[in-house]
Structures are given as structure tokens and as C-alpha cells.
Design a protein around this nucleic acid. Sequence first.
DNA 1: TGAATATATGACCGAACGGTCAAAAACTGT
DNA 2: ACAGTTTTTGACCGTTCGGTCATATATTCA
Lengths: 182, 182
Amino acid sequence: MHDRGYHAAGVTDIAADAGVAKGGFYSQFASKDDLGVAVVDKFADRMFAALHEHLDDPREPSPLRRLHRYFAARIAHHEAQGFVRGCLLGNFALELGDHSEPVRQRVEHYFEELARALAEPIRAAQAAGEVRDDRGALPLARFVVTAWEGALLAMRARKSAAPLREFVAMTLDDFLVGAARR
Amino acid sequence: MHDRGYHAAGVTDIAADAGVAKGGFYSQFASKDDLGVAVVDKFADRMFAALHEHLDDPREPSPLRRLHRYFAARIAHHEAQGFVRGCLLGNFALELGDHSEPVRQRVEHYFEELARALAEPIRAAQAAGEVRDDRGALPLARFVVTAWEGALLAMRARKSAAPLREFVAMTLDDFLVGAARR
DNA sequence: TGAATATATGACCGAACGGTCAAAAACTGT
DNA sequence: ACAGTTTTTGACCGTTCGGTCATATATTCA
């Protein structure tokens, strides 16, 4: 589902790839929609695991640098993969957001969770004077998430890391730091 | 294709909606892929028409305000529609970008065209001192496009105009204007 | 070990998929 | 009016879609 998209991934193929017969799939999931929801949850789990690996890294004292490390790791990942697939939350938001309310709600929820997770180091960085404090940490974090999703979309359109690097330069190094440091 | 997505929109339904028999479709398009490409072109045509309606509006002397007018019109549109469908270029970038090279290239092309079109008023606004000039107009415009696509994605996930308004507040009113005006 | 329960199988369902094609209808230029 | 060309039709092609179900195989507990 992540690399073909929800509709293009057939249940038969999914079951076969899992080494399970067709019917076996339906003993675990009530429907394909059901799997879609489970896939969103699973993806979010992994995303938050990778996120906290960097945000909670005790070796890096600067919260702003922890943020940078996370996105640098994501960029390295996407570069290694050849700029495919992107973020499944974003993909599902566009492919299913208008037609599957359960999926949409979960995607919305995880986006907000992600923003809340990013708001922590941003808030700490504000306290340390590393990030502008004329705006709340959560609104800033929401904008970071949105800009990152846009960058991933542009990455897939251009098959290039340039949009991701522009995200770092514009959103993290410029906008987030604010006028104070420019 | 715009509201169901490429894969979920069947050729039979498309032909029926067009008031044409199944085979009639294939006398106009070699394949469904072919239509996909044509759809991208058509969408881009309309997008640029709407864009230039505002960017070339002689009643508004300020280039920065012309930019604002365009995005305000888009926000009103999406609000009226109920935050569905979003931008077809973005949708296709995510749904087909990895698997249809012709579609991907066209989407990339139109994103760049869009950035170039937005770069004009930005450049003019720089000359007028309305926009920061420590960065080139085209890189700024590319970032605006990317951030806008991210905002549209978030809009569809949240079914709310909030991400679009955040785009205006953060990207246009803050980042673009720069430190000088804050 | 054996009855009861849960899970896996894969042939099968009707429907829809993208695509084809001989025949019919609609145009074209003379 | 008519031959020649282009376009449209809709039945039809094989394939795949999401989903079902009688049957068989594991698992569980006594």
C-alpha cells in the first residue's frame, strides 16, 4: 500500500506477499478498509519510534539540533530509497481522505500527534533562545509538519532531495529560528 | 479522477459521465494513462487561467497584494467545496509519481511553471521593498508552492481551512515578508 | 488422547476492471 | 447523390477486483 497506493494494492497480492492464502487475510481483517486503518497505525508507530530515537537522544544536548538530526536522518532515508513512497500519512490523506472517514480521522490524529511531539523540542529551544518565541511552539510545530509534507510531495514530483533541503533551509534554519538570529 | 483519484475512477464510468460509449473513449485516448496525462494538462490550464486572473489584475497595484488575492480566492474556493479534492497536481504526484513517468514529468513541469509565475510578483515586490530580498525570487516562489501543497494536504486531512490560513500567516505574511517588516 | 474451538485454505462468487473490434452511423469532398 | 473516410457503438475479451465459504488443519483445554 505504501508504494503502490491503497487502490493499486490488491488483497490477493497482499495476502500472497504475506505468505497467506486469500481467505487467511479475511480471518485477520474484516475488509480491505480495515487493513488500511491498521496500516496507518503501523506506519505511525514506526514513524514515532524513529522520531523519538532522535528527539530523546541524550547525546545531543541542543533541542534544535535534535530536530535537525531527525530530519537529516529522514532525508538520508529518502535519498537512499530513490525519492519514492514518501509519507504514508500524506499519501492516504490525499487518496482516501475524502472517501474513508476512519482513515482520515486517524491521519488527522497522527499529524496532530506528530506536531505535538515536535513542539516539545521547539518549546525547549524557545526557552534556550534558539527558536523565535513570538509564536507558540505548537503552531510552529504544525507548520513544520505541513511544510515537511509539502516538501515530501515535491520530492516525489521532482525525484530530488532539493525540496527536502529547501525545507531545512527555509523552514528550520530561517523561519523557525526567526528574525533574531538572521 | 480529481475527486475519486486516478485508480478509483473507472474508464466505463468516465465515458458514461461524458455521455459517450466505452469504445468512444478509446477513439480519443490511447489508454487510461493517456487520459491521465491529458487531465493533468487540462487542470494546469485552468489553474494558470485562475492564477493570471489575479496576478495580472491591473486594479491591484501591489504585486504582493495580488499574490494574496490569488490565495484568498483559492481558500474561498476550497471552503465552498468543503475541503475536498485539493490540487490535482499534488494528488497525481503522490498517486502516480512513482509509477507513471509521463505524469510525473508533467506534474514536475507544471510545479516549476507555477513557481516561475509566482516568482514574477515576488520579484516585483522585492524591488518595491515589500518582500525580503536576501533570497532569489524563484527559490522563494518554489518554497511558496511547496508550502501551499503541504497546506492543501493538511486541509484535506483536517477538513478545515485552518492549514490554509496558517499558510497565509506563516509563509506569506511572515516568511516571505522577512525580518525587515517584522 | 479426544472433544471443542480457532484459524487457514483455495476454489469460487458476482462485479468491475482496462481494452478490443466488427458493424453502424456520421461526416467529408466531389 | 454517393463513394470514401472518420468516428461511435456496445457487446465482448480475459483478467482482476474485494469478498465468501465449506472444508481442512492447528491449537487449546480437559
